[in-house]
Design a protein around this nucleic acid. Structure first.
Length: 576
DNA sequence: GCCGTTTTCGGCCCGACTGTTTTCAGTCG
């Protein structure tokens, strides 16, 4: 038994332990494991029944890795990994989480001082023993001590939910943009790729006066501890333990710098390989042929020079997009401009709604929408929901608004609550009164997988249900998603024709990229919406679209990019 | 350990900053 994720876990651990063993994260073996990992991640399909020769057809997987996958499948373990685990037990591996400690230093303090774990390292530091080792001194001891103290706060593998960093990063960039000589300041890295969690904040700054930028950044209130500051780079930690890197380049180098600092690492390596293939060199400062600049000012120019289509930041994960762009086979991704309506939309008629129906209608018109479905909560959410009588009253009010605002089609919808047993609000007949229903779970997040799956499948089977809302129920970084048999749920969506919601709330971003990608491989439609409870929530549509792009979602598959007639026809067909 | 429209062997992405050094190793992204 070796699923794709089992194989990926094995490779992650192999890479980690091998980098300790080789004393370098750049060791070729380590890179080979990482390449195999990327290849398998990008591979569409299961590894279950694949033979050795089929496995080696996966990019980055050679004979040796294929053997290990088969060994894992047949025996449940891998000898090579087991022997590495013997040498590097978990307590020792934990030391790699200390910022500033790499494999070389760890190897040395283990062999010279007998340090086996964090406790041992602390004792060695207290005894001032590290300073006697080559390459280390008093300052190194100080740094490591501090790093251990703050380990929980900003260890190397700590990730921050996007929602906690997004606004902060943008305001930081705005302030830098105001400085003299600055022509651009853009958050890059995993934030620009719109990953739901980020490791740190990377801000790329184009400026004619880099010194001013770095000296100014150091005076910002948010700077709690300076990690480093030079002519092109300043790194600091906030009080919350979030690391911020500010990188400056000349305005003429903005494109190559954006490209480089947006990453991902895997995407960059593939681009550089393409540059090398052409006898060029690609760095953050540009694409060069010897000393001559081939391209550097815009990202578009660099991609064009490498004979590729432009790759949107959200797709740059090294999962096949470089090949697709080189072959002219980029998917026609959904864009914000293509969205014609919002279909998960609350007013203050919901207990947790904050803006009136009128305000929400005007906000929708302001956003340029052609249609909107109000989906206030059904009666099962005791505090937030509307009774039948209130719902009918609400419908009358929406009809009035529909007559008043000609430019917007207002649909009468509902967010149905999926009970623990899959039951829904009201009764079957009443539910069919709605033009559109999104059904979602709001409680019982800890049911076992079979019950959780059954409740979703039961809801899907109800003809009133047009879409399934925030499928996993997660809050990024705060509450994990529910346990689901994803394949069974996707099968249910495919059979019933119910759309899968991509909820643009930054703390939800749900369905996840992983599930959405699997859904893209099937005949399943999507709805990208905001779950707005206030007029200020409408900007979530931007987020939902960016997040959908990460799973290569195309415009055609998103029902709220369709014209009103087509959309209404589709929603109706579901009820027939 | 993987890979090849130059290669089945000899390569494997590129650069900044720090702390230790008198020219560089280690870490990080």
């Amino acid at each position: 038994m070796a699923t794709k994720s089992d194989a990926m876990r094995m490779l992650v651990e192999l890479a980690k332990l091998t980098s300790l063993d080789e004393g370098s994260p750049q060791a070729f073996k380590v890179r080979a494991y990482e390449n195999a990992l990327a290849g398998i991640e990008a591979f569409h399909g299961d590894l279950e029944g694949l033979s050795k020769s089929e496995l080696t057809k996966i990019k980055g997987v050679g004979g040796s890795t294929a053997d290990k996958i088969i060994e894992l499948r047949e025996t449940g373990s891998v000898a090579k990994l087991e022997s590495l685990r013997e040498i590097y037990p978990p307590k020792f591996v934990e030391l790699t989480k200390v910022p500033g400690l790499g494999p070389k230093t760890l190897k040395m303090i283990r062999s010279e001082l007998g340090v086996e774990d964090i406790e041992g390292l602390k004792a060695a530091l207290d005894a001032e023993k590290l300073r006697d080792l080559p390459g280390l001194g008093e300052k190194s001891e100080e740094k490591i001590k501090k790093a251990i103290d703050r380990l929980g706060l900003h260890g190397k593998d700590r990730r921050t939910p996007l929602v906690e960093a997004y606004g902060f990063a943008r305001s930081l960039a705005r302030r830098i943009l105001e400085l003299d000589g600055v022509t651009a300041a853009e958050p890059c890295g995993s934030m620009r790729r719109f990953s739901e969690t980020i490791g740190d904040i990377d801000i790329v700054v184009a400026t004619t006066d880099s010194q001013l930028v770095h000296s100014s950044v150091l005076t910002f209130d948010e700077v709690d501890e300076v990690i480093g500051s030079g002519e092109t780079k300043t790194s600091f930690l906030t009080r919350e333990g979030l690391q911020v890197d500010v990188r400056t380049v000349a305005p003429s180098q903005l494109g190559s710098a954006l490209l480089y600092f947006t990453g991902s690492k895997a995407h960059n390596i593939q681009l550089r390989q393409r540059a090398i293939d052409r006898g060029w060199l690609l760095s953050e400062y540009g694409l060069f042929e010897d000393d001559a600049v081939v391209a550097s000012e815009t990202e578009e120019e660099v991609y064009a020079a490498l004979e590729m289509d432009f790759v949107p930041p959200t797709m740059r994960e090294g999962g096949g997009e470089v090949q697709a762009a080189a072959d002219g086979k980029m998917p026609s991704l959904v864009t914000r401009d293509a969205i014609k309506g919002d279909l998960h939309y609350h007013s203050d008629r919901s207990g947790d709604g904050r803006s009136s129906p009128e305000e929400m209608v005007e906000a929708a018109i302001e956003a340029g929408y052609r249609y909107v479905a109000f989906t206030d909560h059904g009666e099962d959410l005791a505090i937030n929901g509307l009774t039948r009588f209130e719902m009918l009253e609400h419908r009358e009010h929406l009809r009035e608004l529909n007559r008043k605002y000609e430019e917007l089609e207002i649909l009468f919808g509902c967010e149905l609550n999926i009970g623990p047993d899959g039951s829904l609000d009201y009764d079957a007949e009443f539910r069919l009164e709605f033009d559109y229903c999104v059904a979602s779970i709001h409680s019982h997040f800890d049911l076992p997988e079979d019950q959780q799956t059954a409740r979703i499948l039961k809801a899907l089977a109800d003809p009133s249900v047009t879409a399934i809302g925030h499928l996993s129920g997660r809050y990024v970084g705060r509450r994990p998603g529910v346990e689901l048999d994803v394949e069974a749920v996707l099968e249910g969506l495919e059979v019933t024709g119910v759309a899968l919601e991509i909820n643009g709330a930054l703390d939800r971003l749900d369905a996840t990229t992983e599930v959405t990608r699997l859904a893209m491989a099937r005949d399943i439609n999507f709805v990208i919406d905001t779950d707005s409870h206030h007029t200020r929530d409408l900007k979530r549509m931007d987020y939902g679209v960016l997040y959908a792009q990460r799973a290569w979602v195309t415009e055609e598959r998103v029902v709220n990019t369709w014209d009103l007639d087509r959309f209404v026809e589709w929603a109706k067909a579901r009820r027939a």
